[in-house]
Write a protein that binds this DNA or RNA. Structure first.
Lengths: 161, 161
DNA sequence: CACAGAAATGCGAGCTGGCTGCAACAAGCA
DNA sequence: TGCTTGTTGCAGCCAGCTCGCATTTCTGTG
């Protein structure tokens, strides 16, 4: 699979420890006893290159365009592993499949339940809620995991749902 | 099924239009072309009597303790119908099944992703977020549909996920 | 009270999203 | 080069939910 070399060639400067590039994540993975494989490199490549909010199935399709033999279950297992390492997080933006993105993308999501539109919201939109939850309940929120459902400007509250 | 009569006997004063009792919801249902059936009455009974946050499966089990033949798919269909009427809403409190409760219960949910503890939060905890989302995005939030994930006081942020 | 038309139900099959056990394979060290 | 052990492909499984269809039940009408 010559494509791997091609992909690896664009890895950024060596020596970094933060998981901010494909190669640095691979190093992190290896430092934990993991191994560097084709499917992992390709998956990370997709995650670093493409946008956020892609489902496991979409990521699998992308990976498979380079390496058709990579199985969906491998994608799931690798996403799990990357999540354990803190490199990737998944979010639920609605009733469908989960979406995955790099943990460095820290925005939350507003999803319109009428038209399905999705807005990315900077994490500080949730600042007041975070403070109130902490103050009233000692609860530290992670506003990224589940989308906040509602109605976008265009569909403003036609029903209660 | 004599039990129906028994259940019907506790229906509250006649003539009300708001769906605030089993019988008033049944009237609403019938005014929309729906029909009053045993399973619907029992299901509503469970919803009005028991606490919130019950799954379709749990509600089915309760209904089946009175009427063993009521099928799970009937529960789902009736919950859908009640949701269309605005009587019931469902919420996702985690990765498991959805939970159903009366639309009159307006609290949101804080779920700890370490220990799974669930806190009910009054809707006004989300007041600031609601204002900010409206102001910045013209987005009207419904904070009840998806739980806000995080870490409760006891589990305070031992890991990132 | 019986009847007809329509709505609801029971049942089983099917679907989506995701996970698992296992044998074969391959990464990386010696 | 060979060994150890992590990883993969595959197939099958599981939960949660939905659907099609024949049968039953509700309810207004005659």
């Amino acid at each position: 699979m010559p494509r791997i070399e091609e992909l690896a060639a664009t890895g950024s400067a060596p020596g970094q420890a933060e998981p901010d590039s494909v190669e640095s994540v691979l190093r992190l993975l290896r430092s934990q006893g993991g191994r560097i494989t084709t499917s992992r490199r390709l998956l990370l490549r997709c995650l670093f290159e493409g946008g956020a909010h892609r489902t496991a199935e979409e990521l699998a399709a992308e990976v498979q365009s380079s390496a058709p033999d990579v199985h969906l279950s491998t994608i799931y297992r690798n996403l799990d592993e990357l999540e354990r390492l803190g490199v990737v997080v998944h979010a639920h933006l609605g009733h469908g499949p989960a979406t995955y993105h790099l943990a460095t993308e820290t925005h939350g999501h507003l999803v319109c339940q009428s038209c399905g539109a999705m807005l990315e919201a900077p994490q500080d939109l949730f600042g007041a809620l975070a403070l109130a939850a902490e103050r009233d309940y000692g609860f530290t929120i992670d506003p990224r995991h589940f989308a906040v459902i509602g109605h976008c400007a265009a569909c403003v509250a036609p029903t209660r749902h």
